[in-house]
């Protein structure tokens, strides 16, 4: 129990340090760094490495934005197995909907409730 929390702390922290290094050392914009991470996540899942990684790190692997790319590829492939190549398009957002939908819904609620603060 405690071990799983510790593992996700360390793994999640290390992923964030990688992001910080991309920004500070390679002088890239945050948007580039985030896009890169998503692409890396989808490549890792394409190679079949991301699921063992989630088994290992739990939230340390699902909370960083990389899992977004993983979920996209995963959904696409799962649907493709059932309905052929068109499934890539049908199933793309099947597993990712939690992140995007909650971001949109809470974004709208936030816009209704809050005023910008500096």
């Amino acid at each position: 129990m405690l071990v799983s929390i510790l593992v996700s702390f360390i793994v999640g922290g290390l992923i964030c340090v990688c992001g910080q290094l991309i920004i500070d050392v390679f002088k890239q914009t945050p948007a580039f760094m985030l896009s890169l991470f998503v692409v890396i996540g989808s490549i890792l899942d394409g190679l079949g490495l991301y699921e063992p990684f989630i088994d290992f790190a739990g939230a340390g692997a699902t909370v960083p934005i990389m899992s977004f790319g993983n979920a996209l590829v995963h959904g696409a492939l799962e649907e493709a197995e059932q309905s052929g190549i068109i499934g890539v398009i049908i199933g793309m957002f099947q597993l990712t909907s939690a992140g995007i939908t909650s971001a949109i819904v809470f974004g709208m609620i936030g816009a209704l409730l809050f005023k910008p603060k500096s």
Partner: peptide
């Protein structure tokens, strides 16, 4: 055990 979780399945 934690380090074997990569291959737990």
């Amino acid at each position: 055990t934690p380090l074997k979780q990569f291959v737990e399945q």
